[in-house]
Simulated assay, not measured.
Amino acid sequence: MSDDFVPLTWADLTGCPRPEPQAAIAYGDDPWQRVDLWLPDGPGPFPTVLMVHGGCWTTGIADRTLTNWVADDLRRDGFAVWNIDYRGVDRPGGGYPGTFQDVAAAADALRGYAPKYGLDLRRVVAIGHSAGGHLALWLAGRRRLPQDSVLWCATPLPIAHVVACGALADLEAVAASPDKGCGTDVVGDLVGDASTGRDVYADTSVPRLLPIGVRHDLVYGREDRIVPYRLATDYADRAGAEAVLHTVPDTGHVELVTPGTPAWTVTKRLIAAAFAPRA
């Protein structure tokens, strides 16, 4: 870290004029069961990015509008962005299984709207930030859930690639990390207690689903004060060859979803590469 490094704050991002999506879509009756769709100019079909916001799985901390700036940046580069929201642990029905059911339903709803909006679903790339990075990876791996799981789905939307930025992928490690920026109780709020006798981590924590069978790029800021860097290296070691860790120096947590930063430049390059024709 350079001596003069000062991390961005959320006010540095949210103080900029906020762009607005081209369409808003409900996938359920709850006010938080919503998707914002960002569409490039032209008729399509558009390569489609599925975006999941962070905020410690807590709606009161963040919702999908926190990623409006990067969603618009991708839209300007020719990508459609399916930017999903979900009930956090602080909302009725949030936690387990509701938060996960929402994320799954929002992803699967993409199929029904693709023809109307010219969305190309042959290769969907998911991107998530922080808690949203965990959820994006979980979406890619949920096809490995056992059939007795309440979260099991016979035909989940296929995710071809994930770019996870500052992801809190390993819920068990996060729960045991008091130095993370989400506090000490949030994972317990997310997965609930063990009174049912079910090992909920087996349904929800990404390492329990490994190998997920999907290539994923992990983008982390070396000076991230919300997600300790050891969570990045430990998960990357567990994921093995299907994950690649990209460490961005002089970068904190906010920089990961702020247009124009080195971290976001890395993420955009990885997204574009994920859509490139396979050899």
Rank of each mutant, 00 (worst) to 15 (best):
S177E: 14
H129G: 05
R18H: 08
D120H: 08
V248M: 03
A109I: 13
R222A: 12
D217K: 04
A173H: 04
W10T: 14
D85Y: 07
V125W: 10
V227E: 07
A71N: 12
P21V: 02
D179N: 14
M51G: 14
D234E: 10
T233C: 02
V219Q: 05
T14F: 14
L8M: 15
G112R: 05
T48S: 08
L157G: 06
A154C: 03
R64A: 01
I159N: 10
V163C: 07
F100A: 08
R143T: 11
A169S: 11
G192I: 04
D73C: 08
R225C: 10
S195R: 13
D29E: 15
L139H: 13
R222T: 07
A114V: 09
G118A: 01
G54N: 08
G132R: 03
T233K: 06
A202M: 11
A169M: 01
A274Y: 00
D4P: 07
A164K: 05
A126N: 03
Q22I: 13
V214M: 07
G28H: 05
G44W: 05
G15W: 00
G240C: 00
Y86C: 00
G42F: 09
D234I: 00
T247V: 10
V70W: 13
A273F: 07
A276G: 01
L139A: 13
V257D: 13
R122V: 13
L171N: 00
T58K: 07
T9W: 06
A11G: 14
K268V: 15
C56M: 09
D3P: 11
P249T: 06
I159V: 14
L256Y: 02
D203V: 06
W10F: 12
M1H: 15
Y201M: 08
Y117D: 06
H134K: 01
V162E: 13
Y229H: 15
L218E: 03
G55T: 00
G133L: 12
I25P: 08
G28K: 10
W69F: 12
R111E: 15
T267Q: 12
Y220M: 13
E255H: 05
D73G: 10
F5S: 10
G181R: 02
L145G: 09
G15N: 02
R18T: 07
D85P: 12
Y117I: 07
V200A: 06
